[in-house]
Design a binder for these strands. Structure first.
Length: 338
RNA sequence: CCGCAGGUGGCAGAACGGUUGAUGCAACAGACUGUAAAUCUGUGCCAAGUAGGUUCGACUCCUACCCUGCGGA
């Protein structure tokens, strides 16, 4: 099975190039993003690509709360969108009020990718989320062990120190295996305790992704400065598109402020805005800053990713180069040089 | 013009007459196996409006000036 991956930090134009390649290579897109999976988080998670493409501008329809997109043909479906004849999977697969996680994503995506492949089409994974991407491509050895809601709930209130000593008591070895960062990370400690609480390690702990035979990873990058500029512009553009209104509507439909905070980035800041803690100017500024940081973390993650063919989007003609490389790989199963 | 309050790192914002100078945010670097656009770790910041004075010693006290905010005329 061949799988094409487009990865890189936010605002590098992954989806645009992916759509382009999908047309050329008879492909379908698979979004690899932790928030685009949620129904209704459209503008804020950037489900509509083509900032520079006016035909994707959206307008507010009067009939009900939702927005409609003015693409030549864009339709939303359960679990995928159809954009100008190209399917984008893993959009709208769950309710934003519910928590979603890597394990669900891996299960869902594995099926989607296999289906695409079985139809004779090329799955094109568009990835900004490093963990999710790794999950699909390699799987994770402990993800088969389910979460223990009760245990988590009982652990929730404890201080860092207590969590640490609990883990130490359960398994000195496990504790010592953690790095300094994780030792101070309540979430990781809780998960570690959860795993140590399992009755017995079963051999079914490994959650496997698709493990395709042939992957081409194309990475998009840009200088920090350029990236920040693009991010800033995009935040402004999303404001114009009605991100605030979209979020207000979600809130009216029952998305709580605290849940918005969990969803992070724009939505965390928007929560503050809706509560009246900050004004519009601060809202924009803070969203930009948060996303700068996010892009940085993405780069930290992707820098370790192996076998990536990187392209600098500030260089003229990079799209053609990408297309050429992808086409060659698609036809020959290997990349031409190196 | 008068009165009051205040001028501390990129920003916000503490404490303190004694080798000064917290914290948060941002910045930079990093981690990452069921919330990952989440969560966490590390690092540095040649920071006290200006000019004087008091003092063994001043960011801290005093004076003048400059600037900002609020109130009054």
């Amino acid at each position: 099975m061949k799988v094409l991956v487009i990865l890189g930090p936010t605002a590098t134009g992954k989806t645009d190039i992916a759509l382009h390649l999908a047309r050329k290579l008879n492909g379908e897109l698979v979004a690899c993003d932790s928030r685009q999976v949620y129904v209704g988080l459209d503008i804020g998670t950037g489900k509509m690509p083509g900032r520079q493409n006016p035909k994707y501008a959206i307008r507010n329809t009067n009939n009900n709360s939702n927005f409609e997109i003015c693409a030549s043909d864009l339709s939303k479906h359960n679990g995928y969108w159809m954009m100008d004849g190209i399917k984008i999977w893993m959009y709208d697969v769950t309710d934003p009020k519910k928590q979603y996680d890597v394990a669900q994503y891996i299960r869902g995506t594995t099926k989607v990718i296999n289906d695409i492949s079985n139809k004779g089409k090329l799955p094109i994974i568009v990835g900004g989320s490093g963990l999710y991407l790794k999950g699909i491509l390699q799987g994770f050895s402990t993800l088969g062990f389910p979460i223990n809601k009760q245990l988590r709930k009982s652990l929730e209130g404890f201080s860092l120190k207590v969590l640490q000593s609990k883990l130490k008591k359960l398994s000195r070895e496990k504790w010592q295996g953690l790095n300094n960062s994780d030792k101070n990370n309540p979430r990781r400690l809780i998960r570690a305790i959860e795993l140590e609480n399992l009755p017995r390690r079963s051999p079914y702990g490994h959650l496997r992704g698709v493990t395709p035979a042939n992957v081409l990873k194309i990475g998009l990058k840009a200088s920090r400065e350029m990236l920040n500029q693009r991010i800033d512009a995009r935040v402004l553009s999303r404001m114009d598109q009605g991100m605030v209104e979209e979020t207000e509507q979600l809130h009216k439909d029952g998305l709580s402020i605290s849940r918005m905070r969990e969803l992070g980035l724009e939505y965390g800041v928007l929560a503050d805005y809706l509560e009246g803690n900050i004004d519009k100017e601060q809202l924009v500024k803070m969203m930009q800053i948060k996303i700068h940081r996010y892009a940085k973390r993405q780069m930290t993650w992707f820098n370790k990713e192996k076998d990536v063919r990187w392209f600098d989007i500030s260089r003229a003609g990079w799209q053609e180069k990408v297309a050429k490389l992808a086409l060659y790989w698609y036809n020959n199963g290997v990349t031409s040089n190196k």
